[in-house]
Amino acid sequence: ERVRARYDYEAQNEDELSFKKGDIITVLEKDDGWWKGRNGKEGLFPSNYVEELE
């Protein structure tokens, strides 16, 4: 599954994923509120910062 970033997100910890608004992220795992994904790097990000691609 792929999602698009709705906002910029700056990683707060080294296991998190940074991205810019409009970036496409491949979702690897979904957990409550935090998803694991890849966009060149791999890490956790808040699920409310992304939207599913149509």
Rank of each mutant, 00 (worst) to 15 (best):
residue 10 E to W: 09
residue 21 K to T: 10
residue 53 L to D: 07
residue 46 P to Q: 07
residue 12 Q to N: 10
residue 29 E to Q: 14
residue 5 A to T: 04
residue 46 P to R: 05
residue 31 D to Y: 15
residue 50 V to R: 00
residue 34 W to C: 11
residue 51 E to M: 06
residue 23 D to Q: 08
residue 37 G to E: 05
residue 42 E to A: 09
residue 13 N to F: 08
residue 25 I to V: 06
residue 26 T to N: 08
residue 44 L to D: 04
residue 53 L to N: 06
residue 17 L to D: 01
residue 15 D to W: 15
residue 31 D to P: 09
residue 51 E to R: 00
residue 14 E to Y: 09
residue 25 I to H: 02
residue 49 Y to C: 13
residue 41 K to Y: 10
residue 34 W to G: 05
residue 7 Y to P: 05
residue 18 S to A: 05
residue 40 G to K: 09
residue 24 I to Q: 04
residue 11 A to D: 02
residue 32 D to A: 07
residue 15 D to M: 13
residue 51 E to K: 01
residue 44 L to A: 08
residue 18 S to P: 04
residue 54 E to R: 11
residue 48 N to K: 10
residue 54 E to I: 14
residue 32 D to R: 06
residue 52 E to P: 15
residue 18 S to H: 04
residue 35 W to F: 10
residue 18 S to F: 02
residue 47 S to K: 11
residue 27 V to M: 04
residue 19 F to D: 01
residue 14 E to R: 07
residue 21 K to H: 07
residue 52 E to Y: 12
residue 34 W to F: 10
residue 45 F to S: 01
residue 44 L to S: 11
residue 24 I to V: 10
residue 53 L to S: 07
residue 6 R to M: 14
residue 41 K to N: 12
residue 34 W to P: 00
residue 8 D to I: 00
residue 53 L to A: 08
residue 17 L to S: 01
residue 51 E to T: 07
residue 3 V to L: 04
residue 3 V to D: 03
residue 34 W to A: 04
residue 25 I to M: 05
residue 32 D to L: 08
residue 46 P to C: 07
residue 11 A to E: 05
residue 6 R to L: 15
residue 16 E to A: 00
residue 21 K to I: 10
residue 24 I to F: 10
residue 18 S to R: 02
residue 11 A to H: 01
residue 11 A to W: 03
residue 32 D to S: 09
residue 25 I to E: 03
residue 53 L to H: 07
residue 35 W to N: 06
residue 1 E to D: 14
residue 37 G to F: 00
residue 40 G to Q: 10
residue 42 E to W: 02
residue 6 R to Y: 05
residue 6 R to G: 06
residue 51 E to F: 02
residue 15 D to P: 05
residue 30 K to G: 03
residue 16 E to L: 00
residue 39 N to P: 01
residue 36 K to S: 04
residue 17 L to V: 06
residue 24 I to T: 06
residue 4 R to M: 09
residue 1 E to F: 14
residue 45 F to Q: 03
residue 13 N to R: 12
residue 13 N to M: 07
residue 30 K to S: 05
residue 8 D to K: 00
residue 8 D to E: 06
residue 40 G to N: 10
residue 32 D to W: 03
residue 31 D to V: 15
residue 23 D to W: 01
residue 22 G to I: 05
residue 4 R to A: 06
residue 6 R to P: 04
residue 51 E to Q: 07
residue 13 N to A: 10
residue 38 R to Q: 12
residue 3 V to W: 10
residue 26 T to R: 07
residue 29 E to T: 11
residue 20 K to I: 08
residue 42 E to L: 11
residue 48 N to Q: 14
residue 14 E to C: 09
residue 26 T to K: 07
residue 29 E to F: 12
residue 22 G to Y: 03
residue 15 D to N: 15
residue 2 R to T: 11
residue 3 V to A: 09
residue 14 E to H: 09
residue 46 P to L: 09
residue 36 K to I: 11
residue 50 V to D: 01
residue 25 I to D: 02
residue 21 K to V: 12
residue 28 L to K: 04
residue 16 E to S: 01
residue 43 G to I: 00
residue 12 Q to A: 11
residue 11 A to Y: 01
residue 17 L to K: 02
residue 29 E to D: 13
residue 51 E to H: 06
residue 12 Q to Y: 05
residue 4 R to K: 11
residue 45 F to R: 02
residue 44 L to N: 09
residue 49 Y to G: 05
residue 33 G to P: 14
residue 17 L to R: 00
residue 4 R to V: 13
residue 42 E to Q: 09
residue 15 D to L: 14
residue 32 D to H: 08
residue 11 A to R: 00
residue 17 L to T: 02
residue 46 P to I: 03
residue 40 G to R: 08
residue 28 L to Y: 06
residue 45 F to E: 02
residue 20 K to Q: 09
residue 36 K to T: 07
residue 6 R to E: 06
residue 13 N to E: 08
residue 3 V to S: 03
residue 26 T to Y: 09
residue 35 W to P: 05
residue 11 A to S: 07
residue 1 E to G: 13
residue 7 Y to M: 15
residue 37 G to H: 00
residue 21 K to M: 11
residue 30 K to I: 06
residue 7 Y to L: 14
residue 24 I to M: 09
residue 43 G to L: 00
residue 33 G to S: 10
residue 15 D to H: 14
residue 18 S to N: 07
residue 39 N to W: 10
residue 8 D to Y: 01
residue 45 F to G: 00
residue 37 G to T: 02
residue 54 E to S: 13
residue 15 D to Y: 15
residue 14 E to D: 14
residue 28 L to E: 04
residue 15 D to V: 08
residue 41 K to G: 11
residue 9 Y to T: 05
residue 16 E to M: 02
residue 37 G to V: 01
residue 33 G to A: 10
residue 43 G to P: 02
residue 9 Y to G: 04
residue 52 E to V: 13
residue 11 A to I: 02
residue 18 S to L: 00
residue 33 G to W: 13
residue 17 L to P: 03
residue 7 Y to G: 08
residue 27 V to Y: 01
residue 20 K to F: 08
residue 21 K to G: 06
residue 43 G to A: 03
residue 5 A to V: 08
residue 49 Y to N: 06
